[in-house]
């Protein structure tokens, strides 16, 4: 396999990586600060995509759609936190898993009723319709570069938020010494709600950006959710920096193994069987990565107390 192709596939892996980061950052913050495992995080991704696609279709502006998607997911997240999730903080993880699993069922069915079972195929925004020769001789879709850019910008914003602001200080304190922050009289309820809304907005952003690459459809959240879990476990539960490392690693491993494996397997098997073997073993690679990381560093690559 030549190096240009490998480079192109690495860029594809990076695209997946930044999407996973947006998802994982929210998931891991919510776990880190509140100790809640939220299976419905994928539903926020889906809701952002649907709301964004609808606004884009109405207004013709992808940027407006993106804002609407983020706002919708943040609002839904906020509403969930206020009505349901806060009842779960004191519960065990089984109850959290079940309650948020129930939310997935409700979200999927509600979206199906509102938007119908058919997927929405969102166009690429005009400004990023073409391709850019970022690698000489290899025109690369501008939209994918825009995703990488947006993801990195979001990551920078998160870093600033957490490292440089008072809110960030509380979040950091909350992840390490939850009880003390509470004892200091910080309005912990408001902090939790805000963190949940931020997580929702990030998921909505990811969902909306994925729209033109994939399709806006019921069930899209669960596909990315499980990979997000892998990212979070690989990176270290509760650690945003870990989410970044894990996301890039998982994105690259997933894409590159799917790119390299077929070439190898095709040597020994007929095309249809080879592609079946390669595609699925490629998917296994990510989980294998997780098992290896857990065996060597059970606390994840960048544990939050580091």
């Amino acid at each position: 396999m030549d190096s240009l192709l490998l480079l192109e596939q690495a860029l594809n892996g990076l695209t997946l990586g930044v999407m996973l980061f947006l998802m994982a950052a929210g998931l891991t913050l919510i776990f880190g600060v509140m100790g809640v495992i939220n299976l419905a995080h994928g539903s926020l991704y889906m809701i952002g995509a649907f709301a964004g696609a609808t606004v884009t279709a109405r207004t013709g502006s992808f940027a407006l759609g993106m804002l609407a998607g983020m706002a919708a997911s943040a609002l839904v997240a906020l509403a969930l936190e206020l009505t349901l999730i806060r009842r779960l903080y004191a519960r065990d993880h089984l109850d959290q898993v079940l309650a948020t699993y129930a939310l997935i069922l409700i979200a999927n069915e509600s979206v199906k009723i509102v938007w119908g079972p058919q997927p929405i195929f969102l166009g690429t925004p005009e400004a990023f319709g073409g391709s850019v020769e970022i690698i000489p001789g290899v025109p690369y879709p501008a939209y994918r570069l825009a995703i990488i850019g947006t993801g990195l910008a979001a990551a920078a914003f998160l870093w600033w938020l957490i490292a440089r602001t008072r809110l960030g200080m509380l979040i950091r304190a909350g992840t390490t010494h939850r009880a003390i922050v509470q004892a200091l009289g910080v309005n912990i309820q408001a902090l939790f709600a805000l963190v949940f809304a931020i997580g929702g907005a990030l998921a909505g952003l990811a969902g909306m950006m994925a729209g033109p690459l994939l399709a806006v459809q019921v069930g899209m959240g669960e596909q990315i959710l499980i990979l997000t879990f892998v990212v979070v476990v690989v990176g270290g539960l509760g650690s945003v920096r870990g989410a970044m490392a894990g996301a890039v690693l998982v994105g690259l491993v997933d894409t590159l193994s799917r790119a390299v494996l077929p070439v190898a397997v095709r040597e020994v098997l007929p095309p249809s069987a080879a592609d079946q073997v390669a595609a699925n073993l490629g998917a296994v690679a990510v989980y294998l990565l997780m098992a290896v990381v857990l065996a060597i560093r059970p606390q994840g690559l960048v544990p939050r107390h580091a």
Partner: peptide
């Protein structure tokens, strides 16, 4: 599913 979800909750 819209029945099952709330029930489970």
């Amino acid at each position: 599913m819209l029945v099952l979800g709330p029930l489970l909750l």
